[in-house]
Design a protein around this nucleic acid. Structure first.
Length: 500
RNA sequence: GGCCCGUUCGUCUAGGGGUUAGGACAGGAGAUUUUCAUUCUUCAAACAGGGGUUCGAUUCCCCUACGGGCUACCA
């Protein structure tokens, strides 16, 4: 690999969209490529057209872009090895499949789906391989003239790899080390389907070779099919150029058993997609910062050993190392994901949050006119927001009078003295020259003492008058920001509501 | 069933032949803030089991158990 440029490919299937595991694979691919000044290639795996979802391809690109990952080569930005959609490379695959047949490493199989179904049902541990292939309808078992006849008649058929007997094939995984398989356990996988499309097995080998891929990261679920790929690299005569593989640990369900699936999101109330997809809300829509999303995804199965957990994409590129990727699957923890987001919001400058917060507020019908005012508000409240959507609850009262008050917190203990206090406070505010937080607070406390009231008697009511509830930053800071007129207005409105 | 991969607090993990087995999230308690958060302090919480190897194994090896993945003309 030293004399070869690093080229890493990410090959998502557009049939199911991009979920958590997919984005993480993309991320690790990207980190490794960038760290080695290599290329990050996006190849779209649409071999099964029947399951293709309209718009999926653009969705994948949007997801990567949202995460800050830009492919060096992709269907929209092709490089010298274009095209990058498998469906557009269809003609390439047949010749290699036929070549394998010619060399005796593959064969034509004419069995129908029903016949195979029947065998699988009736024969325990049936697999299309060396044990049963002679009794099935293929170019190995049938006489040559019959095979020629079937082919001439365009009888539907597939091309299968002929897996050899009694061999051990193995490779060194970048994460797991030596992994090996007995060929006797491997079945004759289909390489070319009856419709002429390649299966993943053929396509991935041919494309990785033609696109000069040097390293390939994929999910652990692919490990069992590695021997087929190994054999293919060997039979095609490209063994020396086979990429190095890394099989990533799976992301598991937060509860119960198995790998994380789309249904888990709906069931447990968290996103499994980066962006909204097929009617389910993504991390973006739920109020996650892409920086936080990437950060927490990277830490799911990897760490730099320092104990640090907050990293930017750039830092990740710098620190990333394959040997620090874990072997075991990681359970997805939404609480931890939210913690990452809260950390990123706290860390962010108000200015960089502005556009996103504005969008959240606008969606809720709040018209933000003054950007400088918004910046001040964001600085005041961002430490108490976990998701971007929290900015609505935390900021709305800076822009509109509370729609309702937490009356339970004030009404039971309300008294005429308190009404008098606030009426008097209004007239003080009217006369006050400097409407600063400190001044208002001083006046408030002075009046409080004159009236022999305790802070507990009037501080909370004042907050509820301005905010509507028991939350938010220092109440006098809020009053200053609202301004004299609005503060007085809110006291008056609330007084009316409290004394009904 | 067969094959492959894995196994440290509830979760994500650090560590690695001799450690009080460390951190983070979540949880408990407290301080600060006369709101809610933030922040800070603090508590509880783990090496799957059995055999080896060794003066000594959580760490290395084997077995078992458990978990996961694959076993399609899906990826």
């Amino acid at each position: 690999m030293s004399d070869k440029k690093v080229r890493v490919r990410f090959a998502p299937s557009p049939t199911g969209g991009l979920h958590l595991g997919g984005v993480r694979t993309a991320l690790f691919n990207y980190l490794f490529a960038k760290q080695n000044n290599g290329d990050f290639v996006l190849r779209i795996e649409d071999t099964d057209q029947s399951r293709y979802v309209e718009g999926a391809e653009q969705y994948i690109i949007d997801c990567l872009n949202w995460c800050g990952i830009t492919p060096d080569e992709s269907p929209v930005d092709p490089g010298q090895y274009a095209p990058y959609r498998q469906s557009e490379r269809k003609s390439l695959y047949r010749q290699y499949a036929e070549q394998l047949v010619m060399q005796g490493h593959a064969y034509y199989a004419f069995d129908t789906a029903e016949e195979l179904e029947k065998n699988r049902k009736e024969i325990p541990n049936f697999q299309y391989g060396q044990v049963y292939r002679d009794g099935l309808r293929n170019s190995l078992s049938l006489p040559q003239h019959e095979v020629d006849q079937l082919l001439a008649n365009h009888t539907p058929h597939v091309i299968r790899i002929k897996v050899p007997a009694d061999q051990t094939v193995g490779f060194t995984d970048m994460i797991r080390g030596r992994v090996s398989f007995e060929t006797n356990q491997v079945d004759d996988k289909v390489l070319l389907k009856a419709d002429g499309m390649p299966t993943y097995h053929l396509a991935v080998v041919v494309d990785d070779y033609l696109m000069k891929i040097s390293h390939a990261f994929r999910g652990e679920e692919w490990l069992p099919s590695a021997p087929v790929h190994l054999l293919l690299w060997e039979y095609l005569g490209w063994k020396a150029e086979m990429p190095q593989w890394a099989h990533l640990p799976l992301i598991l369900k937060p509860d119960g058993h198995g790998k994380l699936s789309k249904r888990d999101g709906a069931r447990l109330g968290f996103p499994v997609f980066a962006l909204d997809w097929e009617g389910s809300q993504g991390f973006n829509g739920m109020g996650f910062l892409p920086e936080a999303f990437i950060n927490f995804l990277a830490m799911l199965g990897w760490n730099d050993g320092s104990g640090h957990e907050i990293f930017t994409l750039t830092e990740l590129v710098d620190k990333f190392s394959i040997d620090r990727i874990n072997k075991a699957g990681a359970r997805f923890d939404f609480e931890k994901a939210k913690w990452f987001n809260a950390e990123w919001i706290k860390k962010a400058k108000a200015e960089s949050l502005k556009a996103k917060v504005k969008e959240v507020l606008t969606d809720k019908g709040i018209d933000v006119k003054d950007d400088a005012y918004l910046i001040t508000v964001i600085d005041l409240i961002k430490d108490r927001c976990t998701l971007l959507t929290d900015f609505y609850q935390q900021a709305s009262y800076f822009f509109q009078i509370p729609a309702e008050y937490d009356l339970n917190a004030v009404k039971p203990k309300w008294s005429d003295e308190k009404t008098a206090f606030f009426n008097e406070f209004i007239s003080i505010l009217n006369k006050q020259e400097d409407f600063t937080s400190a001044n208002i607070e001083a006046e408030f406390k002075l009046l409080m003492e004159q009236k022999s009231l305790k802070p507990g008697d009037v501080m909370l009511p004042f907050r509820i008058m301005l905010v509507g509830g028991k939350f938010g930053p220092h109440v006098f800071d809020i009053a200053t920001l609202l301004g004299r007129d609005e503060t007085i207005n809110r006291i008056e409105q609330a007084l009316a509501a409290f004394t009904v």
